[in-house]
Amino acid sequence: MLNTIACFKWVMDEADIKSDPKTHELIFDRVGYKISDYDRNAIEEAVRLQEKHGGTVVGVTVAPPGAKQCLKDALSRGPEKACFINDQSFTDLEPGQTASILAAAVSKMEYDLIICGEGSSDLYAQQVGPALAEKLGIPCATYVNKLTYVEEENKIIAERKLDDGIEVVCIQLPALVTVLPEINTPRIPSLKQVLGAAKKPVDNIGLDSLEGTFSPCLKTTGILAATMERRRLRFGTEAEDIRKVVEALLKEGVIA
């Protein structure tokens, strides 16, 4: 039996972000939202472990109240319950704040294992997982691409993929892991799962039920779009077009 918490973040779809060509400011007008890609892997891993070992999976997120639709998405992926830690002030949180808020809520929950994505697809600071582990005082393993639960000994064996090679570690539960996208392929929710999500319970946790203050340490002094000047010329696949491309490359002096 394994009680797992899967943490997820509701993020802007970075593919929808545009920028003003003159001021280089970012334009978020028509941006869609999604569960951060790596968090889908985290939820999927938690659900796989549950299918194998039994127990529960709770999806937990920290978000402003307007992000409610993330819950249906998360619940359609397998957890039986979601925990919506929300407050108006929870916008543009820095990782340290998210970790503290999660710790304040999770410390009151029963869990054996916490699974996070290796980083969020918007900020990709890769801090919340390990920071949360520290705040809770539990051990962690990051960059995990294979996870096994050894039931008899209540420990996990985590294979970490690091720059210099593979490191396999063993940790006694309770513990936290952050997972790489290659650990699994998240399932596409079926119709029944999507409909079922609407019926699953959600715990709403507000700021007043959390202990501690969650002030930021960092201050953003600017955000500008990364610019790239490119010609953006287009061609087809006809022989004439290919010839023109090769001519251009020769002219640019980039091929021998």
Binding site: M12, E14, I17, S19, L26, S121, D122, L123, Y124, L218, K219, T220, T221, G222, I223, L224, A225, A226
Partner: peptide
């Protein structure tokens, strides 16, 4: 930020 779409400056 955003996969490289933007640069953020912080203190």
């Amino acid at each position: 930020l955003f996969g490289g779409a933007a640069v953020q400056t912080v203190v």
